[in-house]
Design a protein around this nucleic acid. Structure first.
Length: 579
DNA sequence: CTTGGCTGCCC
DNA sequence: ATTCTGC
DNA sequence: GCAGAATGGGCAGCCAAG
């Protein structure tokens, strides 16, 4: 199959909004393709070349591609950037130009070129990569070039993703969505959509039905919903159980001790392979009394002197490729296992939480090392009990609690109310919002590009310095209409350059500066020391920033100078440390 | 040899 | 991570 | 309610520029 045929279909799909229609068209495309091509189509539709646990890394994205595209089209980078502000992305931009292609490449040709691109590294590699991309784009027609750029950028964003591909595979085979559940079950157990497409095309739905979990290949993780109060959670679930929510990273752990050399693998929440990063946890995991196992836990770093858990910013330092052994000594991890998905050749996905918990505890009997532990769990009957438990967890400096329905099965790949998280922010020190001042805005991508705004910069007032200092960029919380209104308002008070009383790092300079006068309410989960933001920044210490910032509304009754002050922000930060 | 821009991936 | 939107 | 697409702070890694 020619790449152009694929690109044309993508272009048609981009214009369609109805999911069923997208599904049908995609199904037709997959039906026409060979099984090899179908697998590739699945991957590149997601902006990848392989399943997530094998990774796809071009080390080339928008900033670098702007250079390539401006070079190719004969414009300056400034001109391209200006046009990009109006257009959804670089792919769209290049698709609007016209030239005569030199070749008529197949899907497989393009795939191979993309693999070549990935494998370039070392000195001068950026130059080489640019040359490879430029040649590839030149060889292709503009529509194909558009999608090749989007693949390199990591997202096709034309209104479908993996779940629509699953539907399309069903439609390809049966002309309806009747195989959706079987295909989804297989995909949930084996997070490799290209492999699912390949097996379906080669061996049919019978082979898909036989697929189960495989130790060494990640299962799509379940996720928790969120509710604002303990009361609401107990009302929703009735009798339930609660576990501490630790602020580390989620690990899906695979163990196979039946081989001559035992296998231990760790996968991240997004199914990236992190197996080489935690040699200290491998030893601990091997103490579990199992032959084969897939379980899930949260890994958190702790201070070896005090035993205190480290904040996320410290724990995340363990996510690294170099100096692994040294860091394992300085910053040891503990992993708290909260679920069991597979044990000694048997799946536990369809067992209830209670059954999985019992089984989980049974494999810990011989474990002495506290590096690996089954997470605590308490029974909850009332909102008050849950609130008390939550408060005691917060008191220990944890992120909150996760509440679970005891009779629920494990639902891979789904976010639902079987698990509900209650986080610190909901009843903690940042319960009140901060009043921040809009300092400027940034052009956006995709839908936001058409609004002319994608995010905005906010700051607080520092009366000691008589200056506005940045504390966050805000990109979520407004409705589409509200984004347009904010852009209009900003344009009416825009100024050509940074005002003298605004302290801002270069990296955060907005595309459009505005006079500091719009006051908005910002909610966040936490205040952290920031290498970038300037709020409360002095020679002695870094500035402050907000974790997970979002806008809740405006304070038109307040002037910029009545906004939250640096002093107040600092106090909130200090209070937070006291817990 | 150090710094800084950019990228990918944790949350 | 949070949030919004079309279906 | 699902699926998708916007967006955040901040860490390590890679490479080019200084």
């Amino acid at each position: 199959m020619k790449f152009l045929e694929l690109a044309k279909t993508f272009d048609e799909l981009e214009a369609i909004s109805g999911r069923t229609e997208i599904t049908k068209k995609l199904a037709h495309l997959l039906k026409t393709a060979s099984w090899q091509e179908a697998a590739i189509i699945c991957y590149i539709s997601l902006g990848e070349l392989r399943p997530p646990y094998e990774g796809t890394q071009f080390n080339l994205a928008e900033k670098s591609l702007i250079k390539v595209v401006s070079d190719l089209l004969g414009y300056t980078q400034e001109e391209i950037k200006k046009e990009l502000a109006k257009i959804s992305d670089l792919g769209q931009l290049i698709g609007n130009y016209n030239w005569h292609p030199k070749e008529d490449l197949s899907i497989i040709d393009v795939y191979k070129e993309l693999e070549t691109l990935e494998n370039i590294s070392g000195g001068k590699s950026q130059e080489e990569k640019a040359a490879v991309v430029k040649k590839l784009l030149k060889d292709l027609d503009p529509i194909s070039a558009k999608y090749v750029l989007r693949i390199i950028l990591g997202k096709i964003r034309i209104g479908f993703s993996d779940m629509t591909i699953i539907d399309a595979l069903s439609w390809m085979q049966e002309g309806d969505k009747s195989l959706r559940h079987k295909l989804e079950d297989a995909y949930n157990r084996c997070a490799d959509i290209g492999y699912i497409a390949k097996i379906l095309k080669k061996d049919g739905i019978e082979a898909i039905e036989k697929m189960g979990c495989i130790v060494g290949i990640p299962i799509r993780p379940a996720a928790a919903e969120r509710l604002p109060t303990a009361e609401a959670i107990v009302e929703k679930l009735g009798d339930c159980i609660a576990q501490p929510k630790l602020d580390g990273f989620r690990l899906q752990i695979h163990v196979d001790k039946t081989k001559s050399k035992p296998m231990v693998k760790f996968f991240s929440r997004n199914l990236k392979d992190m197996s080489d990063m935690f040699p200290d946890l491998v030893d601990a995991v091997l103490q579990l009394n199992v032959e084969t196992l897939i379980c899930e836990g949260e890994a958190v770093a702790y201070d070896p002197n005090t035993g205190q858990f480290e904040p996320f910013q410290i724990t995340v330092k363990r996510k690294r490729k170099h100096d692994i052994e040294e860091m394992a000594v300085d910053l040891p991890l503990k992993v708290f296992i909260f679920d069991l998905l597979y044990l000694n050749g048997r799946e536990y996905l369809a067992d209830t939480h209670e059954e999985r918990r019992t089984k989980l505890l049974s494999i810990f009997k011989s474990v002495k090392d506290d590096k690996i532990q089954a997470i605590d769990e308490v029974k909850i009957k009332t909102g008050q009990q849950l609130l008390d438990y939550f408060n005691s967890m917060i008191g220990q400096g944890l992120e909150g609690v996760v509440v679970k329905r005891p009779d629920a099965i494990y639902t891979p790949g789904k976010r639902n109310f079987n698990w509900i998280k209650l986080k610190r922010q909901e009843k903690g020190h940042l319960e009140d919002t901060l009043d921040c001042v809009v300092l400027g805005y940034y052009y956006g991508k995709g839908k936001r590009a058409s609004f002319g705004i994608g995010a905005f910069l906010v700051g607080i007032y520092n009366d000691r310095q008589d200056a506005f200092e940045t504390v966050a960029k805000i990109g979520t919380g407004l409705k589409d209409q509200e984004w347009k209104e904010l852009k209009k308002k900003c344009d009416s008070i825009s100024i050509g350059k940074r005002p003298h009383n605004v302290e801002c790092s270069k990296e955060l300079y907005p595309d459009v500066w505005v006079n500091p006068e719009i006051v908005c309410q910002i909610r966040a989960d936490e205040i952290t020391r920031s290498p970038l933001h300037t709020a409360d920044k002095t020679e002695k210490h870094l500035g402050l920033a907000l974790r997970f910032p979002r806008i809740m509304g405006y304070r038109s009754d307040k002037s910029a100078f009545d906004a939250t002050t640096a002093k107040e922000l600092t106090r909130l930060f200090e209070d937070q440390k006291k817990k």
